[in-house]
Nucleic acid binder design. Structure first.
Lengths: 221, 221
DNA sequence: TCACTAATGTACGAACTAGTACGTTAGTAA
DNA sequence: TTACTAACGTACTAGTTCGTACATTAGTGA
C-alpha cells in the first residue's frame, strides 16, 4: 500500500490532490475490507483521513464509486506481482511449483484484498462490471501458466487435458479459501489454516497437489 | 357485515408459532445471503413474511441473533447431508471420489449457504463463536474422511502423510471457491465456473486432483 | 499583484433503520 | 363462560448515514 508521509505543515491546510486521494483510498480499503460495503461508513472513512467527507465526494463521487476505485487499485497490485513472475527459465514442474508458491504467498500477504474480493462476490461483481479499467486488464499469471503448461505437455511431463484457466482456478481456490474461510474453518474444525507454523506445510501441500494432478497417470476410467 | 366471503380462512390472523418462526428464518436466509449482514434490512425481511417486524424481535431478539439462527439452521442442513453419506462399503479410492462428489454437489445446490459462510467470515466468525449449538456439533464428514484415509493408508494405496482436516480443506476449497468466487472469476477471466455444461468437467477434475494427490509418489525431494 | 480555479472545510437535512411502547386477539385450561 | 397467556399488530422514536449547499483558501498563470 502506498503510505503517505508528510512533514506536518504548521496549521495552514496543505493542498495535494494526489496525496489526499491516495490517503482516502488507503483508509477506504481498510474500512471496506473490515466491514463490507454496506457496513463501511463514509463518515468513518473520512474521520480516519486528514481530510473531510466532502473530499470523498469531490474525488470519487460517492460510496459506490469509492469502492470501485478501491477494487481497481487492489487488483492492480496483484497484477504487478504477477508481472514480476520470472519462472520461464525453470523446468515445467519447478515453474508450476514456483507459480503456486508465489500465489500462495501473495494471498497470505494481502488478507484485505481477499476480503474485498469476497465482498465483491457478495455483490455479484457489479463493481468490476461497472469498471472500465478492471474489464480491460487480463491476467499476466494466466499467460505464464499457458506457456508452462504447453511446454510441460509438449515434453510429455504433464497430462494433456488441462487448461490454464482451470489450473489457475485450482491454485487460487486453495490459496483463497485458506485465507478467506480461515475464521469459520477455525471455529468449526479447530484448525487455524493461517497459523505460522503450518505455513510451510500448506505451501508444500499445494505444490504437491498441483504437480500430482498434472503428472498423474489418468489411465483409470 | 356478514362476510360470506368464503374460503374457510376469513381474514382473521392465524396463530402458529412454529410456522411464523420458520417463515422468518426462510426469508431472513435469503435476505442475509443477498445483502450481507449490514446490508440486509430488518424491515425488508419483515415485509416479505406474512408477519411483522415485531415478531422478529419477539422470537429472535434482534438482527444479530436472527443472523446467528439463520447460520445455525444452514449448518444443520449440511450436517444432515454429511450424516447420510454412505461410502464405507466402497474401496478407499472410490470412497474418496464419492465424498468429493457429494461435497461438490452440496455446494452447488446451496449457493445461499456459501454466501452466508462468506459473510460470516467477513465478520470473523463472531456469530459462530457466540452460538452454543454451532460450537458443539462436529463434522460427520471429518469422521468419514478419517476412516477412509486410515483404510487407504493401511493398504498402502494412499501416501501416509495426509490428515483428514487437511483433506477436507482441500476438497472444500475447490467446491467453495467455485461457487463463492464465481462472479469475480467470471468477470475477470471470462469463464463461468458454475456453467451447467462445465459441471461434469469440474466434478471430475476435483476427483482426479484429490486422488492424484493421495496416490502420488512423493519420492522427489 | 491580481484574478481565477482547483482544492478544501463547515454545517445541515432528508431519508432511512434498528428497536420498542403499547394495545389487541386467538387459543385454552378451569 | 371466564380468565389467562402466548402470539400478534400498529405506530412511533431516537439515532444514523449518505449526500449536498454554501463558504473559503491556496496556488498559479497572466
Amino acid at each position: 500500500m502506498t503510505s503517505v508521509e508528510e512533514p506536518a505543515r504548521p496549521n495552514g491546510r496543505i493542498r495535494d490532490a494526489a496525496r489526499t486521494k491516495a490517503e482516502i483510498l488507503d483508509v477506504a480499503t481498510k474500512e471496506f475490507a473490515r466491514s463490507g460495503f454496506a457496513g463501511a461508513r463514509v463518515d468513518e472513512i473520512a474521520a480516519r483521513t486528514r481530510t473531510t467527507k466532502r473530499m470523498i465526494y469531490y474525488y470519487f463521487g460517492g460510496k459506490e464509486q469509492l469502492f470501485t476505485a478501491v477494487l481497481e487499485r487492489a487488483y492492480s497490485v496483484i497484477r504487478q506481482a504477477e508481472q514480476e513472475l520470472d519462472v520461464e527459465h525453470l523446468d515445467p514442474v519447478a515453474a508450476i511449483r514456483r507459480l503456486a508458491e508465489v500465489t500462495f504467498d501473495h494471498h497470505e500477504r494481502h488478507p484485505d484484498f481477499i476480503r474485498l474480493v469476497s465482498i465483491e462476490n457478495i455483490h455479484e461483481a457489479e463493481h468490476i462490471a461497472a469498471s472500465e479499467k478492471l474489464g480491460r486488464i487480463g491476467s499476466p499469471a494466466l499467460d505464464v501458466i499457458r506457456r508452462i503448461l504447453e511446454s510441460g505437455q509438449r515434453s510429455g511431463l504433464f497430462t494433456a487435458d488441462v487448461d490454464a484457466v482451470d489450473l489457475h482456478a485450482m491454485i487460487s481456490s486453495f490459496c483463497f479459501f485458506r485465507v478467506s474461510n480461515r475464521h469459520t474453518f477455525g471455529a468449526l474444525f479447530g484448525r487455524d489454516l493461517v497459523a505460522p507454523d503450518l505455513r510451510e506445510h500448506y505451501r508444500k501441500m499445494l505444490g504437491d497437489m498441483v504437480i500430482a494432478y498434472l503428472t498423474a497417470d489418468r489411465a483409470t476410467d
